[in-house]
Simulated assay, not measured.
Amino acid sequence: MSTVKPQPRLQKEQIKPSPLFNRGRRRLRYMMKRWQLYVLLSPAVLYLLIFQYYPMYGAQIAFKRYNTMVGIWKSEWIGFEHFIRFFNSYDFWMIMRNTIGLSIYELIVSFPLPIILALSLNYVRKHLFKKSVQMITYAPHFISVVVMVGMLVQFLDPRAGILNALLGLFGVEPINFMAQAGMFKSIYVWSTVWQSTGFACIIYLAALASVDPAQHEAAVVDGATKMQRIWHIDIPSILPIAIILLILNTGQMLNIGYEKVLLMQNPLNLRASEIIDTYVYKVGLTSQAPNFSYATAIGLFKSVVSLFLLLTVNKIAKKTGQSSLW
């Protein structure tokens, strides 16, 4: 009787996990140990996903003849027709000139003033006076846009305005400032400066508070004046923050916003006050036949130009050895 030899057991091949799998497992273990931090981070991430990234889905209507009855996907694809229409429109150069001119004017005026105010307050020794100036310059930030424009209309009214009353004391005839197209940019920019300078100053004051007092003490011992201390100690300490804010402000050059400009507009100053944001608002929402695709194409064009400006200024700052966003 033959005996059946038992078959040798097949050794199972040991499957080693890939390095990518091990890395993912270590990362998951790291996240589980610090899950509280990710819970705190989740609202900001959800906000970005819902309100910043998800709306990009609708940007495709800039390349379509959007029809609300059939939806985004089934609307007719027309390519760059809306962009070409905007570039060839009669108002294109006027809108771009007004938008860029107003942005550059505001950037030149509003960017250095908070720095000057912060440097000045940093050397004030009277605590009460310093806090009073901070409160007076910071308070206008809480005034809403509607109230701000209402105040401007009242102050600049040709009949009962305070400014015209003061000019009347010197024999000057009443001026309708809000109807002067040439004065629109100055009224907009300087009212914005009055409203935002105090708030922007806080960032620079916080940076100046981190400067080591020993540097100022050594400079005083060496006989340095206040202007020399400002130039050689204070300005270099706030320069990285100033460069970052300048890059961000340049990237937002075309994003002026339509609220304040629209409230200040009237038929007499329209040729100087029509900007991209107000034009998009009118053609996309308030016209008799709203053209959502055309308005989206203009908004997408503005976003692409803003991204290009942001990347360019950031690259220049990096090449010159200054602080940059990345």
Rank of each mutant, 00 (worst) to 15 (best):
Lys126Glu: 04
Pro174Asn: 14
Asn249Thr: 06
Ser2Asp: 15
Ser306Ile: 06
Pro240Gln: 08
Trp77Phe: 08
Gly171Ile: 04
Leu263Thr: 08
Tyr294Met: 03
Val70Lys: 00
Arg27Ala: 14
Leu205Phe: 06
Leu309Gln: 04
Thr278Phe: 02
Tyr47Ser: 05
His141Cys: 05
Leu205Asp: 10
Lys131Trp: 03
Gly257Ser: 13
Thr68Asn: 06
Pro43Arg: 14
Gly251Asp: 01
Leu169Gly: 07
Thr312Cys: 10
Asn269Gln: 13
Pro8Phe: 11
Ser103Phe: 05
Ser144Asn: 10
Pro17Gln: 15
Arg85Ser: 13
Leu152Ile: 09
Asn291Phe: 04
Phe292Ile: 08
Phe63Tyr: 08
Val211Met: 11
Arg29Leu: 12
Glu13Ile: 14
Gly198Ala: 11
Lys226Trp: 10
Tyr294Trp: 06
Tyr281Pro: 05
Phe308Leu: 13
Leu121Phe: 09
Lys226Thr: 06
Val283Gly: 01
Asn269Glu: 09
Val153Thr: 09
Thr137Ile: 13
Val149Ser: 01
Tyr138Asn: 03
Ser144Gln: 03
Val146Phe: 00
Ser103Leu: 03
Val313Phe: 06
Glu173Met: 14
Lys126Ala: 08
Tyr66Ala: 01
Gly150Ser: 11
Leu119Thr: 06
Pro174Gln: 11
Tyr54Thr: 03
His232Ile: 04
His232Arg: 11
Met135Ile: 03
Leu268Arg: 10
Lys315Gly: 10
Leu20Cys: 12
Pro290Arg: 10
Val146Met: 04
Ala139Lys: 03
Ile247Lys: 00
His141Gln: 09
Trp194Cys: 05
Phe177Ala: 01
Gly299Tyr: 02
Ala181Arg: 15
Leu117Ser: 03
Tyr123Phe: 10
Gln180Thr: 04
Leu37Trp: 10
Arg25Asp: 06
Val261Trp: 01
Asn249Gln: 14
Leu169Arg: 12
Val133Ile: 14
Met148Ala: 07
Tyr38Phe: 15
Gln228Ser: 06
Asn255His: 13
Leu37Pro: 01
Lys282Leu: 13
Asp91Ser: 10
Val211Cys: 14
Thr99Gly: 00
Gln288Val: 07
Val39Ala: 09
Asn314Leu: 02
Tyr53Ser: 02
Ser237Tyr: 09
Lys64Met: 07
Ser191Phe: 03
Met178Trp: 02
Ile15His: 15
Lys315Phe: 11
Ala160Gln: 11
Ser273Pro: 01
Leu37Glu: 11
Gln215Cys: 13
Gln154Ser: 08
